[in-house]
């Protein structure tokens, strides 16, 4: 009941939208957020779009994570290089997903 699932908006018709949860799992939902467009990545909860996961912010937050992690890791005594390599692997998957739209 607290959980919202990310999905991609494929069609908008007034206050109603079609979303794709991935793998062709489509659902008709209520649009409960402003400024949503086809192609946006949104959070869906109980059949309503409650917010957008903004791409730029998502990317910014990835950078924030990266910085925070590196700071934490080095402060915590872990090798900087190893941390950066690990992060790169993890974040490239996310970036790919974001860029794929």
């Amino acid at each position: 009941m607290c959980w919202a699932v990310p999905a991609k908006v494929v069609k908008i018709d007034g206050p109603i939208a079609q979303v794709d949860f991935g793998g062709g799992a489509y659902k008709t939902v209520v649009l409960a957020a402003d400024g949503i467009q086809v192609g946006d990545i949104v959070l869906v909860h109980a059949g309503a779009v409650i917010g957008r996961i903004r791409r730029e912010e998502f990317i910014e937050s990835l950078n924030f994570y990266r910085e925070m992690m590196i700071e934490l890791a080095t402060e915590g005594g872990a090798g900087r290089e190893e941390v950066e390599k690990e992060l790169e692997k993890q974040f490239s998957t996310w970036m790919k997903w974001l860029k794929d739209g």
Binding site: M69, L72, A73, T74, E75, G76, G77, A78, G79, E82, V83, E86, L87, K89, Q90
Partner: peptide, 12 residues
């Protein structure tokens, strides 16, 4: 996958 991350946050 996140060993260095988890470990470093844990240390902090």
């Amino acid at each position: 996958r996140n060993t260095p991350l988890a470990a470093s946050i844990k240390n902090i």
